[in-house]
Design a protein around this nucleic acid. Structure first.
Length: 468
RNA sequence: GGCCCUAUCGUCUAGUGGUAGGACAUAGCGUUCUCAUCGCUAAAACCGGAGUUCAAUUCUCCGUGGGGCUACCA
């Protein structure tokens, strides 16, 4: 039987890191096993589901490169299918209409909890006949409950091993608000059967939903599926990632300048690890090595510094054309036109970036000399007069470089002759400071080649003017 | 409160019945005019107790800590 997994998000909020990780592990498993990765939108909650969130999710999946097989569908498009199964359960008395009010249920719950019992529905409406219930349901608010028989439901979890739940503690759960409004635990079961899902890979927060879904599955006579509950990604507060912390929208990783392969690599390593010690892994390598057996059981705290480091690693090896292309979204429009210059700057500064968004500030000096004070030009205790003299001399040397040979290597040769004679710090620091206007920057030869002989001379003269 | 899951450096993790390896972060050194990169070094962990065993971080149990769920959300 071919392996079929699904990613089934509900579009009730911005796509999150947790969502992305679940999608990734499903996708990795499918690709590694040569199975299928399907997509399903769980939009049964009409109030909270929004089209914009669905769009956001689709964009994020595409950006990450998680391609799905077959067409995806929305649960809101499958209402008749759920209705059919709901009616079947009702007729077979495996489900029944319940007319208890929210207030009554809340009181019951409170009473049970104060006695140290597990809160569950008492079963007051269990005995109402279907005929009577259907008549009443037309006039008064009602929901459909699943009749949960007492017993132990155990299932093997690929990651955790055997897990057991006592259904007597769960009680009769609500599976639909009415025939046209199914609820999560019910819709999932119907769809997984319809889609011929073989493995359900999802977050650990769904572990306690599993016995409910298995019970419904059995009542409907559906086939079993295998489960794998992933450890949760925790925030720095050790709690399930929430909007309050880093659970910003996943899209922000893109807009902040993280590379998709780096984010994928990082997420894969959150709860999974290859057999060897390698950590920078390409998509193909991850697919080749991925397996559910090596997935961690305990939750993992999200570590932004490591993401930055990994992103830096990818930035360093990104082909020049791809780097230039990726940078386009992070720089002013005027810069984009200066293609050649931009490419050179990117090469010079790529090692200094953690994120693509860092580039703008790093590259700024090539387009415009920042304001700086005279003291920036002074190297340690060197007297101003010596600095001034070195600058003048260096300018003279640089001016003698043939215009057609104004390349980094040549410039370096000329400049280093001066530096070796007059002291490296004494020559190079003021020169670099004059060229960049900053305390930290690429080397003088790098800057000179990019800004050119003329602009270089202008900047050095400007520094000389400050010192005079 | 009840149920379920879980436990190796600060963080992500490897690993084994004979006390632990890698990575990020941190500190120092080296390369270097600066920053960054890179290289090297240091500091840094098996939650506690009992049991099994010649021996337990590893197996079992009990605690404790952490997390999740406990909706007419998903």
């Amino acid at each position: 039987m071919p392996i079929r997994v699904r990613f089934a998000p509900s579009p009730t909020g911005p796509f999150s890191l947790g969502n992305a990780r679940t999608a990734l592990f499903n996708w990795l498993f499918a690709r590694h096993e040569g199975g299928q990765f399907l997509l399903r939108i769980e939009d049964t909650d009409k109030e909270r589901s929004k089209k914009e969130y669905e769009k956001d999710m689709l964009e994020c999946l595409k950006w990450l490169g998680l391609d799905w097989d077959e067409d995806f569908f929305r649960q809101s498009e499958r209402i008749p299918a759920y209705k059919k199964e709901l009616e079947k359960l009702l007729e077979e008395k495996k489900a029944y209409w319940c007319f208890c009010t929210p207030e009554e249920l809340e009181d019951e719950r409170q009473a049970q909890m104060s006695q140290g019992l597990s809160p569950k529905y008492g079963g007051r409406c269990r005995s109402i006949s279907l005929e009577e219930a259907e008549a009443r349901a037309k006039k008064e608010p009602a929901v459909i409950r699943f009749r949960m028989d007492d017993g132990i439901i155990s299932f093997p979890d690929i990651i955790r091993g055997k897990v057991s739940f006592d259904t007597a503690l769960i009680g009769d759960i609500v599976i639909a608000k009415d025939l046209k409004t199914p609820l999560y635990n019910f819709a999932v079961v119907v769809d997984d059967e319809e889609m011929k899902i073989t493995h359900v890979i999802r977050g650990e927060d769904h572990l306690s939903n599993t016995p409910k879904q298995i019970a419904i599955q059995e009542a409907l006579g559906f086939s079993k599926v295998q489960y794998a509950h992933l450890p949760l990604i925790l925030g720095p507060d050790h709690k399930k990632l929430s909007k309050r912390y880093l659970e910003t929208s996943f899209n922000e990783y893109r807009t902040k300048g993280y590379l998709a392969p780096a984010v994928m690599n990082f997420m894969a390593l959150l709860g999974w690890h290859p057999e060897n010690d390698r950590e920078v892994l390409s998509r193909e390598e991850i697919i080749a090595e991925f397996g559910l057996k090596r997935v961690q059981k305990a939750g993992a705290i999200f570590n932004p510094e490591k993401l930055d480091w990994l992103n830096g690693q990818y930035l360093k090896i990104l082909p020049p054309e791809e780097l230039a292309e990726a940078l386009k979204d992070f720089i002013p429009k005027e810069w984009v036109k200066k293609k050649e210059m931009l490419a050179k700057i990117a090469e010079v500064d790529r090692g200094r970036m953690k994120k693509l968004s860092d580039f703008r500030e790093l590259a700024d000096i090539f387009f415009e000399l920042p304001d700086y004070s005279k003291s920036l030009l002074i190297w340690k205790e060197t007297p101003e007069a010596a600095i001034l003299d070195n600058l003048r001399f260096t300018l003279d040397v640089i001016s003698k470089i043939p215009a057609g040979d104004f390349k980094k290597e040549t410039i370096e040769k000329y400049v280093m002759t001066v530096a070796d004679k007059r002291g490296r710090g004494e020559v190079l620091w003021p020169l670099r400071a004059a060229l960049s206007g900053r305390e930290a920057s690429p080397g003088p030869a790098d800057i000179l080649e990019i800004i050119g002989q003329e602009e270089g001379a202008r900047r050095i003269n400007f520094a000389i003017g400050k010192l005079e």
